[in-house]
């Protein structure tokens, strides 16, 4: 049974850089450490990227002496079009899909964060997607 995850949080952004450069930045530890899970007040103390399908990653950000670990596994690596990985934070596991299409000399990236797999069983019961419900909700709340 295909279960539709509950929330599809989507962010789209244009880059003047080529699809390849944008794609590679996600898997290059030197670059990824600067933008992926870095926080202004924290210090990135560990960055490990095993860039192959089934390979895992670990970004550890130290904030006020406390380590915040961001770990996950690569599910799909299709350079420079599509990158999919899981994201584990505490007991939550979610999925991130990055899709890149060429646009002029640069590209457009769409990031979809499918939040919280444990909600999936409930989402399967509703025909409407979460996006619609929550977008409507956000609009209502202004």
């Amino acid at each position: 049974m295909t279960v539709e995850p509950p929330i599809h949080l989507r962010v789209t952004r244009r880059f003047s850089a080529s699809p390849e450069r944008v794609f590679d930045a996600f898997l290059d530890p030197a670059k990824a450490r600067q933008f992926m899970f870095a926080t202004a007040s924290g210090q990135m103390v560990r960055v490990e990227i095993d860039a192959r399908v089934g390979g895992s990653y670990n970004f550890t950000d130290r904030r006020d002496g406390e380590d915040a670990e961001h770990t996950g596994e690569y599910l799909e690596i299709d350079r420079p079009r599509r990158l999919m990985f899981t994201l584990r934070q505490g007991s939550d596991v979610s999925r991130v899909i990055i899709e890149i299409v060429p646009l002029g000399t640069g590209c457009e990236l769409t990031l979809t964060h499918e939040i919280n797999a444990e909600w999936a069983e409930y989402a399967g019961r509703t025909k409407e997607g979460w996006t619609g419900i929550l977008d409507g909700l956000a609009a209502t709340l202004g």
Binding site: L9, V11, R13, F15, S16, A17, R21, V22, A25, K31, Q34, F35, M36, F37, A38, L109, L111, H113
Partner: peptide, 14 residues
Amino acid sequence: LWTARLDALDALLC
């Protein structure tokens, strides 16, 4: 959070 991360990536590539 994701918007900020992608902004940071763009700044990095620029």
